[in-house]
């Protein structure tokens, strides 16, 4: 089993908010959606590398703060007419703590 790294309590992220964390030099954006689910993506927009952790979160998607591409939190794919994909990071919640897969298992 991949070891999971505890990066803090779920409550550290507001609903419809997001925080980032750096693991092995890789910046990861961790999102908490309105329905209280946690997702993680490499913190880099497929367009021009905008920090997705700063976007406005809507349903299970985030709008990139730079040029407003919408990225699916589930798949990392750009939604709508835009094309591109950001790697997702395996994440899991246990007893109110957020666990990220490490070494980061970046799924395409």
């Amino acid at each position: 089993m991949t070891p999971m790294i505890d990066i803090g309590p779920v409550d550290a992220i507001p609903l419809r908010g997001s925080r980032s964390v750096t693991l092995d030099g890789q910046n990861i954006a961790v999102f908490r959606t309105g329905d209280d689910r946690i997702f993680a993506l490499v913190n880099r927009c497929p367009h021009k590398h905008g920090p997705l952790s700063e976007g406005i979160i809507h349903g299970h998607a985030v709008a990139c703060p730079l040029h407003n591409w919408r990225i699916s939190l589930e798949t990392g794919e750009a939604l709508g007419a835009d094309k591109g994909c950001t790697p997702t990071v395996a994440v899991q919640v246990e007893a109110g703590r957020i666990l990220l897969a490490a070494p980061i298992r970046v799924a395409a």
Binding site: I5, D6, I7, G8, A12, I13, P14, R19, S20, V21, T22, L23, V30, I98, L100
Partner: peptide, 10 residues
């Protein structure tokens, strides 16, 4: 404050 801080691995 949390808007400005990264999460830290335990």
């Amino acid at each position: 404050a949390d808007l400005h801080q990264q999460l830290e691995p335990a």
